[in-house]
Nucleic acid binder design. Structure first.
Lengths: 204, 204
DNA sequence: TGTTTGTTTAACAGCGTTGTTAAACCCTAG
DNA sequence: CTAGGGTTTAACAACGCTGTTAAACAAACA
C-alpha cells in the first residue's frame, strides 16, 4: 500500500531538483509544486514557507557533502593506496552529485545566517579529517614513503582537483562541444589525472 | 575639472561591487543607487534596466577573467620557468579578484542566455591557450624535460588549484578562525603549494 | 454511516522590486 | 542672463512571487 511515496517526500524531491538547479533565490515555489505534480497551496500546507522547505533540503545536502569528505580517509592500507582510493571515491561521489559543491557554497556565501547555522555541522568533520590525515602523513614521512605536506594543503589539493571539473562543466561543456561518450572518457582521464597529480606531489 | 568621475562611471563601480557581492538575482538597483550616492531614478535614467546595467558590468568581468588565463602562458623562457611564472601570475590575479571566478560561473550557469552570448568571447581564448600549451608541451617532452600531459588537463590542473582556495575562503574562513596576517601567510604557502604540485606532476 | 485527513480550486492580500513620470531644482556653458 | 543637461523628489503603476483563505471534494476509516 505504501508503494507510492508520501506526498511530503514527493515535494521534497521536487524541491531538491529545483533548488539544486536554480539556487534559493531563483527557485519558485510554484515551480516546485508543479514539478511535484501537486497544487501550490498544498506545498504551503506541508511546509508553510519557502525558507522552511529549503532548509529541509539544504541540511540534508550539507550532510551529504560533509560525509563525502570522509571517504577521502578510507580504510587501513598503505598510505599511497589510501590516498589513491580516497581521491577516487571522492571523485566518484562528486561525479554523481555534480551540482552539489557549487550549490552548497553558493548558498553559504549568499546567506550569512545559513553559514552560521552550518558551522557546527562542518567544523568537526574538517577537524576529524585533518587529524586523521596528519597522523597518516607523519607516519609515512617518518617511514620515508612520502614528502612532508601540511594536511590542510593536501585537503585543498584533493578537493580542488576533484571539484572544479564539475563546477565548470556546464560552462565549458557549452563552449567546447563534446558528445556523451566523449565526456565519460574525459571524466575517466580526469580522475586518473587527479590521482596522478596528487601522488606526484607526495612521492619522495 | 574632470577630477571627479562621471556619474555613469560611479554607478557602474557601485554596480560592480553589488553584483559581485550578491549576484544578479539578489542585487537591488536601489542598493546600487544608494551605494553610488545617487538617486534611484537617475540609475534608470542612465541604464534604463537592471539587466542593461548588469550586462555592462558582466562583459567587462568576463573579459578580465579571460585575459587572466592568458598570463598562464607567459613569455619565452625555459618551460618549467614559464609554467611556474604563469601559475604565480594567475594566482596573484585571482588573489586580487577573489570573487570573480565564482561570480562569472554562477551567472553563466544560472542564465543560459548569458552563456550563449559569452561563448564567442570565451572560446577563442581557450583555443589560443590550448594551442600554445600544446606546442610548449610537445617541445619539452621531446627534450625530455617533462612528462607528457594533455594541455587540457594541465589547464584544468592549474585553474583548479588556483581558484578553489578563493572560492571556498568565505566559508572556510568562517569555520576555521584565522587572523589577517595568518591568512596572508596561508595564501603565500598555498601559492607555493600549487606551483610545487603542478611541477611535480610535470617532472620526469 | 459520519468523521477525518489529504487534496484541489480559485481567488486574493501583501510585499518588495523594478521601472516610469512630472515637476522642480541647480549648475554651468554659451 | 538664460537655456539645457544633469539631478532630485516624490509618487505611483505594474509585476511576480509568496503565503493565506474558504469552500468543495475524495477517500480511507471508525
Amino acid at each position: 500500500m505504501k508503494e507510492e511515496q508520501k506526498t511530503e517526500q514527493i515535494i521534497l524531491d521536487a524541491a531538491e531538483i529545483e533548488f539544486l538547479d536554480k539556487g534559493f533565490a531563483l527557485a519558485k515555489t510554484t515551480e516546485i509544486a508543479a514539478r511535484a505534480g501537486v497544487n501550490h497551496a498544498l506545498l504551503h500546507y506541508y511546509f508553510r514557507t519557502k525558507e522552511n522547505l529549503f532548509e529541509k533540503v539544504f541540511e540534508l545536502k550539507v550532510r551529504e557533502l560533509s560525509e563525502s569528505l570522509q571517504v577521502i580517509i578510507g580504510k587501513d592500507s598503505p598510505f599511497m593506496d589510501r590516498v589513491k582510493g580516497g581521491i577516487e571515491a571522492h571523485f566518484d561521489f562528486i561525479a554523481s552529485n555534480p551540482k552539489l559543491p557549487h550549490f552548497i557554497f553558493n548558498e553559504l556565501i549568499q546567506n550569512p545566517r545559513r553559514l552560521e547555522k552550518c558551522k557546527p555541522m562542518i567544523a568537526p568533520v574538517l577537524a576529524a579529517i585533518y587529524n586523521t590525515m596528519k597522523i597518516g602523513i607523519a607516519k609515512s614521512v617518518k617511514e620515508g614513503i612520502i614528502r612532508d605536506i601540511d594536511p590542510m594543503h593536501l585537503m585543498y589539493d584533493i578537493v580542488s582537483m576533484n571539484v572544479v571539473v564539475f563546477v565548470m562543466q556546464p560552462v565549458i561543456g557549452e563552449v567546447i562541444e563534446v558528445e556523451g561518450k566523449q565526456y565519460a572518457d574525459f571524466l575517466k582521464q580526469r580522475k586518473a589525472e587527479n590521482v596522478e597529480t596528487i601522488l606526484s606531489r607526495l612521492r619522495v
